[in-house]
């Protein structure tokens, strides 16, 4: 292996470790929020909570993880068209997820307002998560801006890899948030 290639790989492992450490730190944020949920409300859950909607938006987010994965795999093999299409799908699904959360919020305001026991927990958890989704969407957007055409190659697509990893992490967080909010009893 040439020295230049070694340097590129070293740089890549450095960036990866940094991102994973960031994710580790962020997962403690979500852990703290989950603890707050159980500490304040135990396993209580109001009957008005829209479980089917929660299930649907969970599915949407999982699906967006698949499209993000497909996008990353595509660029790893140099298939730019497939990459762009999948990242755009991911963006769309992410927006759809946020719309779902918005509907939930509108219902929540009627049945369990933010300043009440469960409402506090619900709005905080979904709010923090939605904020992460939003930042993820902004990051994904930078990958498919018109000016980025032809930028990522199988040799160098760290930006894609990093942002997609972050997106998966947002999904993992939801994997834990969904049952804690919607399903425990």
């Amino acid at each position: 292996m040439s020295r230049a290639t070694t340097l590129v790989i070293n740089r890549l492992t450095i960036k990866r470790l940094g991102l994973w450490l960031f994710i580790l730190s962020e997962s403690f944020l979500f852990l703290a929020l989950l603890v707050v949920r159980f500490y304040l409300q135990g396993v209580q859950r109001p009957t008005e909570l829209n479980q089917p909607l929660g299930f649907v938006i969970s599915g949407i987010l999982l699906l967006s993880s698949l499209t993000a994965y497909r996008g990353e795999s595509a660029i790893a093999y140099g298939d730019e068209k497939l990459f762009r299409r999948n990242i755009l799908f991911t963006l769309g699904l992410g927006i759809l997820f946020l719309v779902g959360v918005g509907i939930e919020w509108a219902e929540g305001f009627r049945f369990f307002p933010p300043a009440s026991g469960f409402g506090t927990v619900f709005f905080t958890l979904t709010g923090f998560h939605a904020f992460h989704v939003l930042t993820g969407l902004l990051a994904l957007l930078t990958l498919v801006l018109p000016g980025q055409k032809g930028r990522f190659t199988p040799e160098n697509y760290w930006a894609v890899e990093g942002i997609v990893k972050y997106w998966h992490f947002v999904d993992v967080a939801w994997v834990f948030i969904f049952p804690t909010l919607y399903l425990v009893s």
Binding site: I9, T13, R16, W20, A68, E72, A76
Partner: peptide
């Protein structure tokens, strides 16, 4: 499978090859 966490303990792999 999606985040390739095993890259952390196989640091020499390039991307996800």
């Amino acid at each position: 499978y999606f985040m390739h966490i095993n890259q952390l303990w196989h640091p020499k792999s390039r991307h996800d090859e």
